[in-house]
Structure formats: C-alpha cells, structure tokens
Computed example of a mutant assay.
Amino acid sequence: MATLEEAEFCFPKLLNSSCKKIMRPHSVSMLTYITLSSISVLTVTLNLMVIVSICHFKKLHTPTNLLLLSLAVSDFFVGLLIVFQIILIDGCWFLGDLMCSLYFLFDYVITSASVGTMVLISIDRYVAICFPFHYSTKVTVRSVFICVCVCWTCSFLYNCLILKDNFYQPGRYSSCYGECVIIINSIAGISDTIITFIIPITVIVVVYLKVFVVVMSQVRSVRPRVAAVTLQGSVKVNLKKSELKAARTLGVVVVVFLICACPYFCVTLTGGGTVFTASSVAFVMCLFYLNSCLNPLIYALFYPWFRKSVKLTFTLQILRPGSCDANIV
C-alpha cells in the first residue's frame, strides 16, 4: 500500500491534498530525462564558451559581439532553467509556492530578453549592410550597451507587471500540494503574445528580408563588372558561395526561431484566461528552450573567431599573460 501511494502521490503523507504524479513508462521517463539533460548541458556549455570568448578577448569587444554576449547570457540562464523543467517531469513541484512564481518570472524575463536581443541583432545587421558608411558612427559599443540594458530592464519590469497577481499570495491558484501553476488573464495573455512574439517576429522577418534584398542587389550589380576580370570563373564561384551562405544563414535564423517559438506562443495565445501547468506544456517549453541551444551554433559557431577561441580555451592558453590581446579575428 505504501509503495502504491508513493508511486501515485507527490506527498504520500498528504493523501487528501497532495497532487498525483504523472505516471509514464520507465523508458519514456528515461528518454525525457536524457533529452532534457543533454539540452541543458549543451546550452550551458555552448553559451558559456561564447561568454568567455567575448569577455576575454579584447578584439571581440565590438557592438555586434556585445549583442551576441547578451544573447548568450540569456540563453545560458535558459539552460539552467531547464533543470527546473526536469524536476517537473513527474508533475510534482517540491520547491514551494514562492519558488514556483519566481521560476515562471525568471523564465519569462530571460526568454523575453532573448527575443529582444534577436531583434537588436537583426537591426544591427540591417544598419551594417544597408548603411555601411554610417554604421561606425551610429552603432557604437556604448549605444549597444545602452540598448541591451534597456532591453533587459524592460523585460524585467514588463513581466513583473504581467505576473504580479501571482506574487500577492503564492500558491493560491494551486488545487493541491505539489502543483506549480500561474494565472494570466486573457487580456494580459493576448497582449503578451503580441508584444513578445508577433511584433518581434514581424520586425525580424521584415528586416532580414530587406537585408536579403540589399545583398542580392549588390551581388547583381557586381556581376557585370566581374565578367571583365580575367579570373572570371573563380570569382564567380566565390560570389555564388557568399550569396548562398547569406541566404542560408538568414533562412536558418528565421526558420529555426519560428519552429522553436511558434508552438510555445500558440499555446499561450489559445490558453488565455486558463491555468498554465508547467508539466502540461513541457513539450512546447522544451522546444522553445532548444532554440537557446541552437543560437550559439547559428550566431557564433559559423564565425572563425569562435572556433579559435574555443581552441585557446580548451588548451588553457587563455590563462597565459597577455592572452586577451591575441588576434583571433
């Protein structure tokens, strides 16, 4: 009898008020644990490498890399938050009602800051490609730092406002002990989806489309002049490679983010005014978390300086005096 109670209830001693565990086959539970743990470790490791590289090497202290640093920091914390999602696999929360509310607050703040940083990165690339002569004067380390600080501050204040009702009396929306839920009314839910998903996605897609059009027009304008060059064949090949690389990178950035983020925000949009149980949206949340693991691969791994910095870090050469001045660009 005791074994049955322990298998079914989060708190076996509180049978009348304890939540029941989500019963799954052992193989499914193990696969879920391994998948989430792998995503968490990869997310933390990859983003930590980006953070160490940009902070350590002075040559990487540029406006664009500062945005990558902000994205890596938010994604690093997302990797840590996955640990709490692992705790919720069985549908039981053992850390208390206040920690439950804080968990959702940190989750919302970090993911919002990540989306905001992606918008800033798209704008940075737009200015760099479409207005190259004004880029160095308009986009500086100081201006980017201010934008990043504003992004994080607004994300924190905005999500505190959205979730404020859940902090007045933590746990008042829970129907049993061991449940971790929050309440977001329908108006706030729809507004949150518009502000943190629809508007950012629209900006990112429109900006990247404009960047793509500018890149294609530049390639077409260069081709007639390239035709007169003696090494016509080899130069054309290089242009085609750069053209395909630009198209592929922009496509990966937009498509991967849409694939990872759309299910999560669709659940949020259709679930306005209802109780959000962390265990019931585990799949879409994990898919959204996966984007934080892919971001360093998309934004940083394709850069040669990232591969060099990883090599210097793993070989402990960054511990040598003057290593921060190394030219890895």
Rank of each mutant, 00 (worst) to 15 (best):
328 I>Q: 02
101 S>R: 09
7 A>C: 07
232 Q>P: 12
74 S>L: 02
9 F>C: 06
191 S>V: 10
171 G>P: 14
207 V>R: 14
57 F>Q: 02
167 F>Q: 03
88 L>D: 01
110 I>A: 03
285 M>H: 08
138 K>F: 00
190 I>R: 08
186 S>D: 15
324 C>M: 11
311 K>P: 15
272 G>S: 06
18 S>I: 08
159 N>Y: 04
300 A>V: 11
288 F>H: 11
13 K>Y: 04
265 F>G: 02
62 T>M: 00
264 Y>L: 12
249 T>V: 10
140 T>V: 01
16 N>Y: 08
199 I>C: 03
152 W>R: 09
86 I>Y: 04
263 P>E: 00
299 Y>R: 09
306 F>C: 04
216 M>G: 14
221 S>H: 14
137 T>H: 00
187 I>G: 09
72 A>Y: 04
250 L>I: 15
325 D>Y: 10
277 T>N: 10
249 T>H: 13
54 I>N: 04
237 V>C: 13
317 Q>I: 00
296 P>T: 02
217 S>N: 07
128 A>Q: 10
51 I>H: 00
36 L>Q: 09
309 S>F: 11
239 L>E: 00
160 C>Q: 02
248 R>T: 03
284 V>I: 11
139 V>S: 00
147 C>V: 06
275 V>T: 13
45 T>D: 03
144 V>N: 08
77 F>Q: 09
200 P>M: 01
305 W>Q: 05
127 V>Q: 00
274 T>W: 06
6 E>K: 03
271 G>E: 00
174 S>D: 04
147 C>E: 01
329 V>Q: 07
203 V>I: 14
38 S>N: 07
219 V>Q: 05
1 M>G: 10
15 L>W: 02
268 T>L: 14
295 N>K: 15
287 L>F: 09
62 T>A: 01
9 F>D: 03
251 G>L: 01
219 V>N: 08
287 L>C: 11
282 A>E: 07
266 C>M: 08
264 Y>G: 02
197 F>G: 07
296 P>Y: 01
179 E>Q: 10
207 V>G: 13
294 L>P: 15
236 K>R: 09
6 E>D: 13
94 F>E: 04
220 R>F: 08
8 E>I: 15
140 T>Y: 04
46 L>H: 00
248 R>K: 15
100 C>L: 04
71 L>E: 15
76 F>Y: 12
149 C>K: 09
203 V>H: 05
9 F>G: 05
177 Y>W: 03
210 K>D: 03
281 V>L: 06
106 F>S: 08
167 F>P: 14
105 L>S: 08
301 L>Y: 12
44 V>C: 02
104 F>R: 13
21 K>N: 07
187 I>W: 14
70 S>R: 13
